[in-house]
Every structure is written in structure tokens, then in C-alpha cells.
């Protein structure tokens, strides 16, 4: 049975392709926001916990992951008027190829998971793994500090998706705590980004090389 969850998750998989293929930061930020919206609404679609409390938490998560975090990065860019283009170290073609490999590997590994809670959702684990590794790929493949932060957020989205299977009574409060940490982390990174821009007039991390050994 093709579930609604799987349809939106397949869109997330495509969005990873978009993030690998695009060289515009604005597109990357929108992709991150879209992924944030989808991963935080997955628990609602799965019908895990449809109490008023659970829905409120999911909506708050959606607001933070889908809107506030991307907006935070967007404003940081806007304020310092950084070049809008980014280029991965290894070029776009290699990136696309890597995406294909990533999807195949994630689907293979994701299929090995045999968890009772998610057996109805064939795409949940593959998407989570693809987000995690895709985020790491983005993080390591760029010298641009903003793209690195975006990679970190993508990783976090993946971990959140893995965590949706985690269903205990204390889930919401703890998840919300995690989310607040991530939010604060992104805000601090945005502040550092602004400072890097002021100091070096660019956000290329290859400029940060005084402390090498």
C-alpha cells in the first residue's frame, strides 16, 4: 500500500538531489525549509499521537524546523550580502553521481532495518539515512561556511526522522529540548557567520587557516 507519508518522503529524496545540483544558496535554504516541514509533519501523518498536546508539539516543531531555522540563515546572509553562488569542491557532476549512489545505498541499508514500528512505511528509513549522509556530504563538500551550516541542519533533519520511531510517553518534552538546542546552535552559527564575513569579507572557510598545525 502506498501511504501518504511515502509520497512526501519521496519528494524529500528529490529535494536532496536539488540541493546537490543547485549552486544557489537561496535554493539550498528553501530545500532545508521544505525538509524541515516534511520531517516534522511525518508523526502527524503516521498518526502516532493525535492528542491535542501531540499536535501542538508537532506544529511547534514544524514552525521551528520549517520556518525559523531557515529564516535565521536567510537573514544572516541577507544582512551581510554574501555572494549567492556556491560550488562544491568536487563539482556538480560528481555531486549528482554521488546522489545516485547515496539513494541506492540508503535504500539497501534502510531495507535491512526490521523495526515493527515503521514496517508500513518503506521509505522512512531510506530517507532518514539519505538525509543524514547527504547532510554530511554537503558539510564536507563545501568550503562555504553557510553551505556547511545547511549541511548540519540537513543531518539534524535526518536524525529527527530516525527519532520519530521513538515513541514513549516522555517523547515530546525531550524532543522539544533537543529542538531548542538545535535552534540555539543554528543561531550561534549565524552569529559566527556574520563575524566571519566582517572579519574576512567572505565566508570561505579556506580563509580560516591561522590555527593549522
Amino acid at each position: 500500500m502506498i501511504h501518504l507519508v511515502d509520497i512526501v518522503l519521496s519528494l524529500v529524496l528529490l529535494s536532496i538531489l536539488l540541493s546537490f545540483g543547485s549552486n544557489r544558496l537561496a535554493v539550498l535554504i528553501k530545500v532545508i525549509g521544505f525538509q524541515g516541514v516534511v520531517v516534522s509533519s511525518v508523526p502527524l501523518f503516521m498518526g502516532h499521537d493525535l492528542s491535542a498536546f501531540g499536535i501542538a508539539f508537532s506544529l511547534a516543531t514544524l514552525l521551528i524546523r520549517g520556518m525559523i531555522i531557515p529564516l535565521c540563515i536567510y537573514l544572516a546572509i541577507k544582512k551581510v550580502a554574501i555572494r549567492q553562488e556556491v560550488e562544491p569542491i568536487y563539482g556538480h557532476h560528481a555531486s549528482m553521481l554521488a546522489w545516485l549512489g547515496l539513494i541506492v545505498a540508503s535504500a539497501f541499508i534502510g531495507g535491512k532495518f526490521n523495526l515493527p514500528a515503521i514496517n508500513n512505511h518503506a521509505l522512512l528509513m531510506p530517507t532518514a539515512i539519505a538525509l543524514l549522509t547527504g547532510g554530511m556530504f554537503l558539510l564536507m563538500g563545501h568550503r562555504n561556511a553557510i553551505a556547511m551550516v545547511l549541511g548540519y541542519i540537513m543531518m539534524e533533519n535526518g536524525i529527527y526522522l530516525v527519532g520519530t520511531t521513538f515513541s514513549t510517553s516522555t517523547r515530546h518534552i525531550v524532543e522539544f529540548g533537543i529542538l531548542l538546542d538545535v535552534l540555539a546552535g543554528v543561531m550561534i552559527m549565524a552569529v559566527i557567520l556574520q563575524n566571519i564575513k566582517q572579519q574576512f569579507d567572505d565566508v570561505d572557510t579556506s580563509l580560516l587557516r591561522t590555527l593549522k598545525e
Binding site: M136, M148, V149, Y152, I188, I196, L208, T210
Partner: peptide, 13 residues
């Protein structure tokens, strides 16, 4: 600045 950037990014990841 470089140390802070490295610290926050490496530790967060």
C-alpha cells in the same frame, strides 16, 4: 573566530 567556528561546528556535528 576561527577557533569558535571550529569548536561549534565540529562539536555540533
Amino acid at each position: 573566530l576561527e577557533a569558535t567556528w571550529k569548536y561549534v561546528l565540529v562539536c555540533s556535528v
